[in-house]
Computed example of a mutant assay.
Amino acid sequence: MAIFLDQLTLLKEKEPYLFIEKISHIVLRKTTANWFLKDIQHKESCVLVYCFEGYAEYILANGRLRVGPNQVAYFLPGESRSIVSDPLQPWTFCSTVFQLSKERGIDPEELRSLLGENPLSSTKEIGVRFRDLVIAWNSKFKGYSIVCNGILMELLGLLIHRATIHKLKYSMPHYSRIQIALEALEKTGTEAVSLEKIANKVGLSESRFRHLFKQAMGVSPHRYRLRRKIDKAIELLSSGLYNVSETAFELGFDNVYYFSNLFKSYTGRKPSSFLK
């Protein structure tokens, strides 16, 4: 029991989680040279826009924002804007309007701080997932809303990850070493990890590695591993293929009670609440 309590005290800071309450609509539109929209505003919804090709300019209360191919823009609820398509290179875009849960998870302002400033850096691969999102939304097959929710969560996760990596590259002299260490930790899966071996791999002493890792990631290597396991647990529980006990054992936890308490410490919810 003492070991269990010691491990649980490592979780003083809760990792922010994202909960999408509802997707209102998703649209893919190819515009013309004279296309524009004036004074758009979604009072209670966030908006995520991906540009496939061409250019457009947003006219905002605090200035102008130009968006081009493979760029993303995120707008807060109530944020007023007008849009003008470039007359020489009209844009093609996907717009997703969604609401975050008001009772749990981060709010729209916190999401903006994680995503960074507009326009957000993106890739063609992210563009492919936006197309998948449009296809799923327009299909209206049974369960389409669950699929759309999952794709949108994935997209936001990818964008947050890119923003985080970008910040690390320009703020950390040891970024490349931490990146190698993260890749090594990911490859271990549920196996036991030797921090000494990983530290040697990146040319650092174990104590120096622990210090730099926490400086970069905000948590110790141990807590990072636990957090990744909880992320995987949510995926397994939501799949409908694993119950709570099976999920715990799949991720290397021998004590289901410890796993359940650990899970709730991170997410604020019981593992069973994610079961399909």
Rank of each mutant, 00 (worst) to 15 (best):
L11T: 01
P16F: 02
L18T: 09
F19C: 08
K22W: 10
S24L: 11
T31E: 07
T32A: 06
V47L: 05
G54Y: 11
Y55G: 03
N70H: 11
S80R: 10
R81V: 10
R81G: 02
S82R: 02
S82H: 06
V84L: 11
D86A: 04
P90Y: 03
T96Y: 02
F98Q: 08
G105K: 08
L120G: 14
S121Q: 15
K124P: 08
K124W: 13
I126S: 00
R129M: 13
A136I: 10
F141S: 10
I151P: 05
M153S: 13
L155S: 03
L158S: 09
I160W: 03
A163T: 10
H166V: 08
Y175V: 15
S176C: 07
I180M: 13
L182T: 08
E186H: 14
T188W: 01
N200T: 09
N200S: 13
V202L: 02
G203V: 04
F209T: 04
F213V: 05
L226H: 01
L226P: 01
R228H: 12
R228F: 14
A233V: 08
L241W: 09
V244I: 11
E246N: 07
A248P: 05
F249Q: 09
L251C: 00
G252S: 04
D254A: 14
D254K: 15
N255Y: 09
F259Q: 01
K264Q: 05
S265E: 07
